[in-house]
């Protein structure tokens, strides 16, 4: 009798494994950034309003900052834009725009239309700096601490719960920087 139950047990085990697999499939789609806990890559890129002015994230050392990857072609960036505006107003840290694989004219028109909430923009037209950041889709939002270490990354548009989570994390990073 017990021997008859062995195949049933194996079967139930397999079914359980597959159910767990299916339920975590959504989670596995998000590629965890190996950058978290590591220093932010030293990217230096031209600005958006002034292409001659090359700026880098290194100049922000000493304070936490948010880096937000966007593009005028990116539909989800428009969705998250109200929360980007709130981050710009309420986070109390620099909010860097990383304009990814965009045309300058399109990007400027987009900002004109929807509002420029960022502290300043870095332009990565070719997408090579984005590879150093491990960017694989816009929008993406990175939190970097005052020592220049990447502490958090959010992939996809920011909605209300994500906004609250980001604000909490930024606040913690600000406290850390002050202590």
């Amino acid at each position: 009798m017990i021997r008859m139950l062995i195949p049933l047990g194996v079967f139930v085990g397999l079914v359980a494994l597959l159910i767990v697999g299916l339920q975590t499939a959504e989670q596995r789609k998000i590629v965890a950034s190996p950058l978290i806990g590591k220093p932010v890559p030293d990217i230096r890129l031209p600005g958006l309003h002034d292409p001659d002015m090359v700026r880098g994230v290194a100049e922000l050392r000493g304070q936490p900052f948010i880096l937000n990857v966007w593009g005028s072609w990116c539909w989800a960036c428009r969705v998250e834009h109200p929360f980007i505006e709130r981050l710009g107003r309420e986070a109390g840290v620099p909010l860097v725009g990383f304009n990814w694989k965009d045309e300058r004219a399109d990007a400027l028109a987009w900002l004109n239309r929807y509002g420029d909430a960022w502290s300043f923009h870095l332009v990565d037209f070719e997408g090579r700096a984005a590879i150093d950041l491990g960017v694989y889709g816009a929008p993406e939002t990175f939190l970097v601490d005052h020592q220049g270490v990447v502490r958090h990354k959010h992939v996809g548009p920011i909605d209300a719960p994500v906004f609250d989570d980001l604000m909490r994390r930024v606040l913690a990073l600000r406290m850390e920087a002050e202590s």
Partner: peptide, 8 residues
Amino acid sequence: MVSRYGEF
């Protein structure tokens, strides 16, 4: 590639 995008 792994250091940027993970083992995935």
